[in-house]
Write a protein that binds this DNA or RNA. Structure first.
Lengths: 203, 203
DNA sequence: GTCTATACAACGATAGAC
DNA sequence: GTCTATCGTTGTATAGAC
């Protein structure tokens, strides 16, 4: 009896070799995220468009967040993992950890990836909107919850100014001597400023 | 004798109405600056391409610097004038003056102009190169000469990270609450960080 | 007649050739 | 080290618009 009912349903188990589920998800995600924004896009809708099961998003990308990072942003790392590392340690050294991680991660890609990201964000308003939702709901929310200070939203945007500016100057326009400075020089120079945005006095 | 030799020269005095010398210079400048860079482009070459005298650059734009600002960058203000205002006052308050002026000037344009500037810089490597030369040779050189501290080049690029980042977050991606914050809030929040880059301890 | 956009000459600075 | 070429800029006389 059970066998008969399966006739018109999808086959279970592994798909045939050559069907690239991962690539199909990335392609579908790019379209849906850009069209609906990060919040408006649902994992189920993306999976349906890709013709695969929604569980595949978790399997391949660790969740909606990871899929967004690798499809629209094309980040060369997993933001959830990086975030975990950043939040692990004393708050007074968070600025230092963030800058060191940021520079290390993007340096490893040669910087061209960051430039591409900025280009797509500045040229496509929809991507900028999706990125904003992503940052607010998937990143800032987690970070800010661990910071027991006032004006958390303002602090988050201030941190964003410093990180984005650092990325542009070091990777896109490549102003010297910052573009070629070693990681520790950058950390020493910038981390205290980021730390002030995180936990310092803003008034 | 002298009169005879003038026969094959251009007529002096005002040209016929309808010939827009200013626009001709802007058009020629855009091409030459982008092709040769800020340093490589000569006022004389631009003027020749526009079919006018080189002195017209000074008359209409106050110099090579102003012509670049209004042709390639399309800035809504005169950088030389703004620069003069920034350098006028105690060094300990320079960070505050710079942030206040920056926000005031770009707020007045609605921010779209800044976004357009970033877009052209990030999408055209030649523009980025020309901008770099312009900043180094026409802006930083003057500012840094007045700052009696060590590591001036590094400080200049650090300042650039903060200014560029502020512009992107406030005018391009418009993260709240920073995008809608009033000028004084922004000044109080960011000026101390810029001041550290200018005159503080970097180690 | 007045105003100003214009062309030309010349100056000080700078960089490269020899 | 000197000479030369070229740069950005400034001063000035003039032609045309108003």
């Amino acid at each position: 009896m059970a066998r008969v009912e399966q006739v018109n349903q999808k086959r279970r188990g592994r798909r045939a070799a050559g069907e690239d589920t991962r690539a199909a998800l990335v392609a579908a995600a790019r379209e849906v995220f850009v069209e609906k924004g990060y919040d408006g896009a649902t994992v189920r809708a993306i999976a349906a468009k890709a013709g695969v099961d929604a569980a595949m998003v978790n399997h391949w990308f660790g969740g909606k967040e990871g899929l967004f990072a690798q499809s629209v942003l094309q980040l060369p790392f997993d933001p959830a993992e990086v975030l975990k590392r950043l939040l692990d340690g004393p708050l007074e050294q968070a600025g230092e950890r963030i800058i060191r991680t940021f520079v290390t991660v993007w340096d490893a890609t040669g910087g061209g990836t960051f430039a591409a990201l900025i280009r797509s964000v500045t040229s496509q308003p929809e991507v900028a909107g999706a990125l904003k939702q992503f940052l607010v709901n998937a990143i800032f929310r987690n970070v800010l919850a661990q910071i027991g200070v006032e004006q958390r939203e303002l602090r988050a945007t201030l941190c964003a100014t410093q990180m984005v500016g650092l990325g542009i100057v070091r990777y896109v326009v490549r102003f010297e001597p910052l573009a070629s400075a070693d990681v520790e020089t950058v950390v020493k120079a910038i981390a205290p400023n980021l730390q002030r945005y995180l936990t310092g006095e803003l008034g």
